[in-house]
Amino acid sequence: MPEPMLAIAGVNTHIGQYHILQGVDFEVPRGGLTMLLGRNGAGKTTCLRTIMGLWRASAGSIRVDGHDITRAATPDVAQLGVAYVPENMGIFAGLTVEENLRLAARAGEPDASRLEWIWRLFPAMKTFWHGLAGNLSGGQKQMLAIARAIVEPRRLLLVDEPTKGLAPAIIANMVEAFRELKRTDTTMLVVEQNFHFARSLGDTVAVMDSGRIVHTGRMDALAADAALQTRLLGLSLDAHQ
């Protein structure tokens, strides 16, 4: 069995006096898309931020592609090939679309063929290439945030709620973009509240509750089990219709 791209074992994270992650264990298989689901406040965002080194794990271990990154600084995690799209998208509003992408291309200028591919995925990025990122719509900002994360090939892509606040048409566009990304060898861990989005893209799933992983398995198995959805997420897929 191949080594997982991401292996998290017994991770605890404290933020001030609060004990948020309480022994998180799960693995993200190489090359697929793993959905991290859970109710609000379950610890999903904290989990992504802990992987990125933005918050420090107080116990446990985190390994990316065999490298121990538990105590690694955020730039070191990024240089290992981990890209992060935060919940607030983290775009630089005062920079142009071009500058946002140029900054993310650590090797220098973005590769031309890679750029063409990104423009095909998100045509708005080409249209507003010289425009200020702060002037983009919410959906376009999310596209820019994802485009920035994939401007160079990455080992692992961490995305926090990519569909939050987006119109259905934009979400459909986002689904297509993630499908295209799945055809590359990038491994993805995506936090999501939109179960339809999660079901249509996820290969595997991990469900969090109260700072712990309470379920891991195949996404299609969870999608087919309404009782399990109700127990884990408080709502079944039918209730989302």
Partner: peptide, 17 residues
């Protein structure tokens, strides 16, 4: 470019490596 980005969001600049 890094300075201008860092003024806006230093955490994201670190996340870019």
């Amino acid at each position: 470019l890094l300075v201008r980005a860092g003024v806006e969001n230093p955490e994201m600049v670190e996340s870019l490596g």
